[in-house]
Design a protein around this nucleic acid. Structure first.
Lengths: 103, 103
DNA sequence: ACTTACAGTAAGCTATGACTTACGAACAAG
DNA sequence: CTTGTTCGTAAGTCATAGCTTACTGTAAGT
């Protein structure tokens, strides 16, 4: 269910950039906004989407809010791709088998 | 470079459904359109996007055109997620190490 | 207490993308 | 060669998603 939200979340370029900016270590909204070409409220809105997609987590740190990458969303998306992967492979081997039968 | 296109391609629900309809075996545009709630030209347009994202391939079969799942796009997307994965894990262990240092 | 810093929410604008209908091209069939 | 499928493209409509400015709230600093 969440892999769909993860896909739509990571589809937007700026949102993806924000997400990637959290690769190494957690950052605040203000810090993130500095590295992005959009306004701070825009970053907030993007973080909201990322959060509902289980891709980031928040931890209030006094006045600020620390955003960090969360594993759940990534895992969901990964397993979705993996299921697809095996399907494609099995379909491929089925095709091979069919050709063998035709000989 | 392609993983971005793959993300935006799979972000749209109907386009994702079309893609998933090709899981087991290749289909023609008409066959795909029957299973979808949109018109046939819409399916064609979606297939064009999926194709440029390296997610599907076409093989002309007389009058018709057979669309099938292609591995390239999936591989790109998978490796992108994987790179992210390791980054998250290393950041996590770095955090652990930092806490250990603080004791 | 008041002021400043930080962040989320509301409202409104705009561009883009997903859809439709209409048309054109290519191959098949009769 | 004419008719019928099958599909892609063009043009135009409409909804949505992303952005901005303005505001509201909350915690810290003085």
């Amino acid at each position: 269910m969440t892999y769909e939200q993860a896909l739509t979340a990571l589809a937007d370029p700026t949102r993806r950039h924000i997400f990637e900016a959290l690769r190494d270590h957690p950052k605040t909204v203000g810090e993130l906004a500095l590295t992005q070409p959009v306004s701070r409220p825009a970053v907030s809105q993007h973080l909201k989407v990322l959060q509902s997609a289980q891709l980031v987590s928040v931890k209030p740190k006094g006045n600020k809010r620390l955003y960090a990458v969360k594993r759940e969303g990534l895992e969901e998306l990964r397993s979705y791709l993996d299921s697809f992967w095996s399907d494609v492979l099995s379909a491929y081997s089925a095709e091979i088998a069919k050709r063998v039968d035709n000989n």
